[in-house]
């Protein structure tokens, strides 16, 4: 229970950093998807168990977004589901695997966001979105995923040890 509360607070802090702190600090420029990176790396480490946090993180972003409600959380969810299905190639390094995972989620989730906006009747310049948003984020997000993986891997190992201890006790 305490672990879940801690994870919730960290996720909320990431969402607030992404939507409030970074825009104020960096101005109106492109900013990394912190929630996308953290939750996707967690799914890469934990598998389908991590999808709950993906949805929760997406919902937090949905609250501050003017896009149709649910679009961000569903895009993130589907992005991670696609990454789970595609995750067949043998990648020896766990860090590279997490980074590739985040790159895939970036492409799929932003692509779905664009599609959702188009279906909702909102104007979106697809060429501009591809060249000026998705391509730069394909560099920024996977690069930050390396740091996220280093931190979350420690959390995951501690979590695994705790789960193993609980199993033995049972």
């Amino acid at each position: 229970m305490r672990w879940h509360v801690g994870a919730f607070v960290v996720l909320l802090a990431l969402a607030l950093t992404e939507t409030s702190l970074l825009p104020a600090a960096l101005g109106g420029g492109l900013r990394p998807g912190l929630v996308l990176i953290a939750t996707s790396v967690w799914v890469a480490l934990r598998g389908m168990d991590g999808l709950f946090w993906v949805f929760l993180g997406g919902f937090m972003l949905d609250l501050t977004s003017n896009l149709p409600v649910g679009l961000t959380s569903l895009s993130l969810l589907l992005g991670n589901v696609v990454a789970t299905i595609v995750d067949r190639a043998p990648i020896p390094s766990a860090t590279v695997r997490a980074s590739t995972w985040v790159a895939l989620v970036t492409v799929v989730s932003y692509g779905l966001s664009i599609a959702g906006m188009a279906i909702s009747g909102l104007d979106v310049d697809v060429v501009y979105a591809m060249t000026n948003v998705i391509l730069p984020l394909l560099v920024i997000n996977p690069a930050l995923a390396v740091i996220a993986h280093a931190a979350l891997n420690q959390v995951n190992l501690r979590q695994r040890r705790r789960e193993a201890g609980r199993t033995i006790a049972l």
Binding site: S20, P23, M117
Partner: peptide
């Protein structure tokens, strides 16, 4: 101003 839209495709 307390936040920006998380989507890079809309300016809110």
């Amino acid at each position: 101003v307390i936040a920006s839209d998380p989507s890079p495709f809309s300016r809110y």
